[in-house]
């Protein structure tokens, strides 16, 4: 019954109209480039090098995708990225929600110092060299997918997003559970997490996107091409001879414009396909049923 209330109003309220127009506009601006990218990735380089873009894939060409598929082990790269994304997101969510819960509880002597400890790494970093030494020489994680996952495991930004959400949980529900004699851990597991599904979905999505797109730690720590995650492999595909004009111009001739666009399509595709699954949790009032049930 409750959702009806949001719907019951007359459909032609001015703000609703404004919203539809506003969202449509933003949508258009957002996906117009997507179309340019998609269409361009199927357009022959000769046309792209004339205009830089193409509204329709004509003359049609699969050169870029052929180059990508001819490259080494694209399938392996999908597997690597899949592993990094799934395992990474799961571990990250576990660590993040645990930490966020403790901070959100405002426990005396514990929550505030923890919040500060979590925040400081957002400002201070030891730089590349110590991280490199730590991962390669102390943890011996070179060429392991965990070397890609671990440096990004807890993002302070997302911890605080989650803290904010945990703090908005209705205290009355938690309190009644406490009175029923539930332990704090049980409250976290039984009430806190289920009530926070929307934010868990969002934070999980953001982590997943981070892991899926990550190439820099992979570049640092993974030298075995069979273990390259997708973004790194794709980046490598454009033989980046341009690093210096001092270098010989040898190198296979690849369709540069087209290839860059096709690489974008190949990388974005899977995440866009996965997006609706995460979206399910924060589109409609999931919390509602949970609170009342």
């Amino acid at each position: 019954m409750s959702t009806d209330i949001r719907r019951r109003r007359a459909p032609l309220e001015p703000f609703t109209v404004v919203s539809i127009i506003g969202v449509s506009l933003f949508m258009l601006i957002s996906i117009a480039p997507l179309w340019l990218i998609l269409s361009g990735s199927f357009t022959a380089e000769s046309k792209l090098s004339e205009t830089g873009y193409s509204l329709f894939p004509h003359p049609f060409s699969l050169d870029a995708y052929r180059t990508i598929l001819a490259g080494p082990t694209v399938v392996d790269a999908y597997i690597a990225s899949g592993f990094i994304t799934i395992v990474g997101t799961a571990l990250a969510l576990a660590c993040t929600s645990g930490l966020a819960w403790v901070i959100a509880r405002r426990l005396p002597m514990i929550s505030r110092p923890l919040a500060v400890l979590t925040y400081l790494p957002m400002l201070f970093t030891g730089g590349l060299v110590p991280l490199y030494l730590l991962v390669t020489q102390y943890l011996h994680l070179a060429n392991s997918w965990f070397a890609v996952i671990l440096p990004l495991l807890v993002a302070p930004f997302l911890v605080f997003i989650q803290v904010g959400a945990f703090r908005q949980l209705p205290e009355s529900v938690l309190e009644s559970a406490r009175i029923d004699g539930a332990s704090e851990l049980r409250i976290f597991w039984r009430i806190g997490l289920p009530l926070s599904k929307p934010i868990l979905a969002v934070v999980g999505l953001f982590y997943a996107v981070n892991f899926w797109n990550e190439w820099f730690t992979a570049l640092l720590f993974i030298s075995d091409i069979d273990k390259f995650p997708l973004p790194l492999l794709l980046q490598n595909l454009i033989a980046n001879v341009s690093a210096s004009t001092m270098l010989p111009t040898s190198g296979q001739a690849v369709p540069v414009y087209q290839l860059r666009l096709a690489l974008t399509v190949v990388t974005i595709g899977p995440i866009l396909l996965a997006y609706p699954f995460a979206q399910r949790y924060f589109v409609k009032g999931i919390t509602l049923g949970a609170t009342k049930g």
Partner: peptide, 21 residues
């Protein structure tokens, strides 16, 4: 042989020298 992407070749080799590899 270890191939290092051009985009990071300079940085990466410098790191390896610095780390005493």
């Amino acid at each position: 042989p270890q191939f290092i992407a051009w985009t990071n070749y300079g940085n990466q080799t410098l790191l390896k020298f610095t780390a005493g590899e």
